[in-house]
Amino acid sequence: MTRFVKSPKEVASGFLLVLLAAFFAWQAMDLPMGRAIRMGPGYFPMILAGLLGFLGLIVLLTGLTLHPVAEEDKAQEIGLRRWPWVPLGMVTLAVVVFGLGIRPLGLGPSMGLAVFLSTLASRKFRLTTALLSSAIMVAFSWAVFIKGLGLPLPMLGPWLGGY
Protein backbone atom coordinates (compact mmCIF):
# COMPACT_ATOMS: atom_id res chain seq x y z
CA MET A 1 0.00 0.00 0.00
CA THR A 2 2.55 2.51 1.12
CA ARG A 3 4.27 2.08 -2.22
CA PHE A 4 1.56 4.14 -3.84
CA VAL A 5 2.19 6.96 -1.45
CA LYS A 6 4.74 9.21 -3.04
CA SER A 7 4.62 11.80 -0.33
CA PRO A 8 3.16 11.08 3.10
CA LYS A 9 3.19 14.81 3.87
CA GLU A 10 0.95 15.64 0.92
CA VAL A 11 -1.41 12.76 1.64
CA ALA A 12 -1.68 13.70 5.30
CA SER A 13 -2.29 17.39 4.62
CA GLY A 14 -4.80 16.59 1.88
CA PHE A 15 -6.62 14.23 4.20
CA LEU A 16 -6.61 16.82 6.97
CA LEU A 17 -7.98 19.52 4.64
CA VAL A 18 -10.78 17.27 3.39
CA LEU A 19 -11.64 16.41 6.98
CA LEU A 20 -11.75 20.08 7.95
CA ALA A 21 -13.88 20.86 4.90
CA ALA A 22 -16.34 18.16 5.88
CA PHE A 23 -16.43 19.51 9.42
CA PHE A 24 -17.18 23.06 8.30
CA ALA A 25 -19.77 21.85 5.81
CA TRP A 26 -21.46 19.82 8.53
CA GLN A 27 -21.51 22.84 10.84
CA ALA A 28 -22.80 25.10 8.07
CA MET A 29 -25.64 22.71 7.25
CA ASP A 30 -27.70 23.97 10.15
CA LEU A 31 -27.39 27.56 8.99
CA PRO A 32 -29.98 29.19 6.73
CA MET A 33 -28.69 29.17 3.19
CA GLY A 34 -30.68 31.95 1.59
CA ARG A 35 -30.45 32.59 -2.13
CA ALA A 36 -27.78 34.26 -4.22
CA ILE A 37 -29.60 37.62 -4.11
CA ARG A 38 -29.93 37.63 -0.34
CA MET A 39 -27.36 35.24 0.99
CA GLY A 40 -28.02 33.63 4.31
CA PRO A 41 -25.33 33.05 6.91
CA GLY A 42 -24.66 29.59 5.55
CA TYR A 43 -24.18 30.46 1.87
CA PHE A 44 -20.59 31.65 1.75
CA PRO A 45 -19.28 29.12 4.33
CA MET A 46 -20.81 26.31 2.30
CA ILE A 47 -19.09 27.50 -0.90
CA LEU A 48 -15.80 27.81 0.98
CA ALA A 49 -16.14 24.37 2.52
CA GLY A 50 -16.68 22.95 -0.94
CA LEU A 51 -13.63 24.79 -2.25
CA LEU A 52 -11.53 23.62 0.70
CA GLY A 53 -12.58 20.03 0.09
CA PHE A 54 -11.70 20.33 -3.59
CA LEU A 55 -8.26 21.79 -2.84
CA GLY A 56 -7.66 19.13 -0.20
CA LEU A 57 -8.49 16.44 -2.71
CA ILE A 58 -5.94 17.86 -5.16
CA VAL A 59 -3.27 17.90 -2.46
CA LEU A 60 -4.18 14.34 -1.49
CA LEU A 61 -3.98 13.12 -5.08
CA THR A 62 -0.63 14.80 -5.79
CA GLY A 63 0.82 12.78 -2.93
CA LEU A 64 -0.22 9.50 -4.55
CA THR A 65 1.28 7.78 -7.54
CA LEU A 66 0.25 4.96 -9.82
CA HIS A 67 3.83 3.96 -10.41
CA PRO A 68 5.00 2.27 -7.26
CA VAL A 69 8.08 3.92 -5.87
CA ALA A 70 10.77 1.86 -4.26
CA GLU A 71 12.02 4.45 -1.90
CA GLU A 72 10.32 7.34 -0.26
CA ASP A 73 11.63 10.85 -0.50
CA LYS A 74 13.16 11.59 2.87
CA ALA A 75 12.08 15.24 2.79
CA GLN A 76 8.48 14.16 2.35
CA GLU A 77 8.34 11.96 5.42
CA ILE A 78 6.35 13.25 8.34
CA GLY A 79 8.66 11.66 10.91
CA LEU A 80 6.13 11.55 13.73
CA ARG A 81 8.62 9.75 15.92
CA ARG A 82 11.03 12.65 15.69
CA TRP A 83 8.43 15.25 16.64
CA PRO A 84 9.25 17.14 19.82
CA TRP A 85 6.38 15.63 21.77
CA VAL A 86 7.60 16.75 25.17
CA PRO A 87 8.04 20.44 24.26
CA LEU A 88 4.77 20.43 22.32
CA GLY A 89 2.92 18.88 25.24
CA MET A 90 4.54 20.97 27.96
CA VAL A 91 4.13 24.33 26.24
CA THR A 92 0.50 23.58 25.41
CA LEU A 93 -0.10 22.38 28.97
CA ALA A 94 1.48 25.54 30.35
CA VAL A 95 -0.87 27.73 28.31
CA VAL A 96 -3.95 25.67 29.25
CA VAL A 97 -3.00 25.74 32.94
CA PHE A 98 -2.70 29.51 32.75
CA GLY A 99 -6.21 29.69 31.28
CA LEU A 100 -7.63 27.39 33.94
CA GLY A 101 -5.88 29.15 36.79
CA ILE A 102 -6.27 32.82 35.93
CA ARG A 103 -9.76 33.18 37.45
CA PRO A 104 -9.67 31.01 40.56
CA LEU A 105 -5.95 31.37 41.41
CA GLY A 106 -5.21 34.87 40.15
CA LEU A 107 -2.41 36.20 38.00
CA GLY A 108 0.53 35.45 40.30
CA PRO A 109 0.14 31.69 40.76
CA SER A 110 -1.06 30.99 37.23
CA MET A 111 1.77 33.00 35.69
CA GLY A 112 4.31 31.24 37.89
CA LEU A 113 2.85 27.84 37.00
CA ALA A 114 2.77 28.59 33.29
CA VAL A 115 6.37 29.76 33.18
CA PHE A 116 7.56 26.87 35.33
CA LEU A 117 5.75 24.30 33.21
CA SER A 118 7.23 25.78 30.03
CA THR A 119 10.75 25.54 31.38
CA LEU A 120 10.14 21.80 31.62
CA ALA A 121 9.84 21.75 27.82
CA SER A 122 13.55 22.32 27.42
CA ARG A 123 16.13 19.61 27.71
CA LYS A 124 18.32 22.10 29.52
CA PHE A 125 15.92 22.33 32.45
CA ARG A 126 17.47 23.31 35.75
CA LEU A 127 15.36 23.74 38.87
CA THR A 128 17.08 26.89 40.08
CA THR A 129 16.85 28.77 36.78
CA ALA A 130 13.27 27.59 36.33
CA LEU A 131 12.21 28.90 39.73
CA LEU A 132 14.11 32.10 39.15
CA SER A 133 12.48 32.67 35.74
CA SER A 134 9.04 32.06 37.21
CA ALA A 135 9.65 34.45 40.08
CA ILE A 136 10.97 37.16 37.76
CA MET A 137 8.02 36.79 35.42
CA VAL A 138 5.51 36.95 38.30
CA ALA A 139 7.15 40.10 39.65
CA PHE A 140 7.41 41.61 36.20
CA SER A 141 3.80 40.93 35.23
CA TRP A 142 2.64 42.40 38.54
CA ALA A 143 4.69 45.55 37.96
CA VAL A 144 3.76 46.00 34.29
CA PHE A 145 0.26 44.66 33.93
CA ILE A 146 -1.32 45.34 37.31
CA LYS A 147 0.59 48.39 38.54
CA GLY A 148 1.63 49.90 35.21
CA LEU A 149 -1.29 49.20 32.90
CA GLY A 150 -3.89 48.77 35.60
CA LEU A 151 -5.44 45.57 34.26
CA PRO A 152 -8.38 44.49 36.38
CA LEU A 153 -6.69 41.28 37.50
CA PRO A 154 -6.18 40.11 41.06
CA MET A 155 -2.73 38.86 41.97
CA LEU A 156 -4.36 36.16 44.11
CA GLY A 157 -7.70 34.70 43.10
CA PRO A 158 -10.70 33.79 45.28
CA TRP A 159 -9.37 30.30 45.97
CA LEU A 160 -6.35 31.78 47.66
CA GLY A 161 -8.12 34.40 49.73
CA GLY A 162 -8.09 37.11 47.07
CA TYR A 163 -11.14 38.64 45.51
Binding site: V91, A94, V95, V96, F98, G99, L100, I102, R103, L107, S110, M111, A114, V115, F116, S118, T119, A121, S122, A130, S133, S134, I136, M137, S141, F145, L151, P152, L153
Partner: peptide, 24 residues
Protein backbone atom coordinates in the same frame (compact mmCIF):
# COMPACT_ATOMS: atom_id res chain seq x y z
CA UNK B 1 14.06 33.13 26.95
CA UNK B 2 11.19 31.00 25.72
CA UNK B 3 9.34 30.39 29.02
CA UNK B 4 9.19 34.16 29.43
CA UNK B 5 7.73 34.47 25.93
CA UNK B 6 5.10 31.85 26.83
CA UNK B 7 4.22 33.88 29.91
CA UNK B 8 3.89 37.07 27.90
CA UNK B 9 1.71 35.37 25.31
CA UNK B 10 -0.60 34.05 28.05
CA UNK B 11 -1.21 37.34 29.80
CA UNK B 12 -1.29 39.21 26.50
CA UNK B 13 -4.01 37.10 24.99
CA UNK B 14 -6.00 36.96 28.22
CA UNK B 15 -6.05 40.72 28.61
CA UNK B 16 -7.68 41.26 25.20
CA UNK B 17 -11.14 40.26 26.43
CA UNK B 18 -10.43 39.04 29.97
CA UNK B 19 -11.66 35.73 28.73
CA UNK B 20 -10.00 32.36 29.32
CA UNK B 21 -11.42 30.95 26.08
CA UNK B 22 -8.90 33.06 24.17
CA UNK B 23 -6.09 31.41 26.12
CA UNK B 24 -7.37 27.95 25.15
Amino acid sequence: LFPLIVGFCCIGVYSVNNNAIDVY
